[in-house]
């Protein structure tokens, strides 16, 4: 493939990945890696490095809009980041003692299950629900933009629940992402949606806010190993950035149900990608 063609194709793929990644809070790596490896024949190590850059671009590009519009819960994001980065260290330490293949298979099953449950939203908690002690201590309750029944924009208050449980799951998400390198965004959205009972758009945008930091944490190591190849990472970065900006514009208009469906599709992609790597021995 000529450089011009490869750059164009990578840019186009990253545009789509950035769009889907910004909407779902997953960063779009699960879309990009299979495209790069299976369609363009790029070595998995380059693909993983470039996808890391795509996640950072998507996260930073879309977060600017999401924060301004008031979707992102910055406090929840900063608090959960601690658990994720500490989990990532723990994961790296135990990586030598566990079977990555076994974990990947179990995790992909968990992903298929979570894709199924995401499509069945929990009933929203009534607004007068008694406040959660821990959540009050960390001042996590907030509000986010919605539309009133007659279509005018308004801010709706919500409460945050089950913080200790969510922190524990975030530790697990960090461990998993260090072990199998995929799916930490999925666990984040899932914990915020199902456990903390955040509105779905708050869950995806807050995950989007965090994943850039998680990815940047490991970028140094990937750079040293030579996995960040400029001819791949550069078009991916600008493409993902462009796609994320479009995604950020679409989010306020998209129905939550469709967002859940898109999320479920990406989660299934991630599960399939994990199994593919186990079978091909790329873990």
């Amino acid at each position: 493939m000529t450089a011009g063609l490869l750059v164009t194709l990578l840019f186009g793929s990253a545009l789509v990945a950035g769009f889907a990644g910004a909407l779902t809070g997953l960063g779009g790596g699960v879309v990009l890696i299979p495209i790069m490896v299976l369609l363009f024949g790029i070595d998995l190590r380059y693909a993983v490095g470039a996808s890391l850059i795509a996640v950072i671009a998507t996260s930073s590009g879309a977060a600017a809009a999401f924060i301004k519009e008031g979707y992102t819960n910055v406090r929840v994001g900063v608090l959960l980041e601690v658990a994720t980065v500490l989990g990532a260290i723990a994961g790296a330490v135990i990586a030598a003692y566990v079977s990555k293949d076994l974990i990947a298979v179990v995790f992909s099953c968990a992903l298929f299950w979570s894709a199924y449950t995401t499509l069945r939203p929990l009933k929203p908690l009534p607004p007068d629900t008694h406040p959660d002690r821990v959540s009050q201590y960390f001042r996590l309750d907030s509000e986010y933009p919605t539309k009133s029944p007659d279509g005018t924009p308004m801010m709706t208050a919500y409460r945050v629940h089950a913080v200790p449980g969510a922190l524990a799951i975030m530790l697990g998400a960090g461990v998993l992402s260090a072990l199998v390198g995929i799916g930490s965004g999925i666990v984040k959205v899932f914990a915020m949606d199902r456990l903390m009972r955040l509105p779905f758009k708050v869950s995806t945008t807050t995950s989007n806010f965090m994943i850039g930091v998680t990815a940047a944490a490991s970028a140094g190591v990937y750079l040293q190993r030579g996995q960040i190849e400029p001819a791949i990472a550069a078009p991916i970065a600008v493409g993902a950035l462009g796609g994320s900006l479009v995604g950020a514009r679409v989010l306020p208009r998209i129905k939550t149900l469709w967002l859940r469906r898109l999320f479920a599709v990406l989660v299934i992609c991630a599960g399939v990608e994990l199994l593919r790597r186990v079978i091909q021995g790329g873990m």
Partner: peptide
């Protein structure tokens, strides 16, 4: 050209870190 691209990628990686510092 390659190095300028990589410099841009590096600046992109630094963006979320600057964001945490600014937070």
């Amino acid at each position: 050209g390659i190095a300028v691209m990589q410099l841009g990628v590096l600046l992109l990686v630094l963006t979320p870190i600057a964001r945490v510092a600014f937070t």
